[in-house]
């Protein structure tokens, strides 16, 4: 547990959390590794976890009928993965697949969700962090969908 605390405490995502909340998070955490090509989770499965990627690359994929899986984003060292556990119906909206060997900290979100309901301070602290993450990803997705390097934007933009 101490080792996990050490791992979490330097990550910007957890910055500013109280000692007690950090201890709780560490108590809900475990190290998990994934071989290349193994799914961390799949679309529609119950979302009962979130992850801190310690190393390696994870592809987030959507499956398109007749066209197979398509990677819409990748996550790497230091990235947080997963917020579907926060919002009903608590199911994943995409697949997460290891592209390289991936080492993570896995958090038991079902337990944390329950604790957040009973401890509004913890609930607010975590929601604030996950909302920041969601906004960051939303902005990134918006930028990605603009096709900024396409023909509409020329010159140095090309």
């Amino acid at each position: 547990m101490n080792e996990l605390m050490e791992m979490l405490k330097d990550r910007p995502f957890f910055e500013g959390l109280s000692e007690a909340h950090m201890k709780l998070l560490a108590a809900c955490a475990a190290l998990r590794s994934f071989e290349p090509d193994v799914c961390l989770f799949r679309e529609h499965e119950p979302a009962e976890a979130f992850y801190l990627v310690r190393s390696g690359t994870v592809a987030l994929e959507s499956r398109l009928p007749g066209r197979g899986a398509r990677t819409f984003a990748t996550l790497g060292e230091g990235d947080m993965l997963g917020w579907s556990w926060l919002i009903p119906p608590y199911r994943w909206h995409y697949d997460a697949r290891a592209i390289t060997p991936v080492h993570t900290v896995h958090f038991d979100a079902a337990v944390l969700r329950d604790r957040m309901d009973h401890d509004p301070e913890l609930g607010y602290a975590l929601l604030k962090r996950f909302t920041g993450l969601i906004v960051e990803r939303l902005q990134a997705a918006r930028l990605q969908s603009l096709d900024i390097y396409g023909d509409a934007d020329v010159g140095l933009g090309g």
Binding site: T71, E77, D79, T100, E136, A140, L143, Q144, I148
Partner: peptide
């Protein structure tokens, strides 16, 4: 290095360049 749209044989990152910066 990242690309907005990957291909089947692309093993690198997919996403915008800001995400690479965000990794610190």
């Amino acid at each position: 290095v990242t690309v907005d749209r990957g291909t089947a044989d692309w093993k690198g990152d997919v996403g915008v360049v800001t995400q690479l910066i965000d990794r610190g």
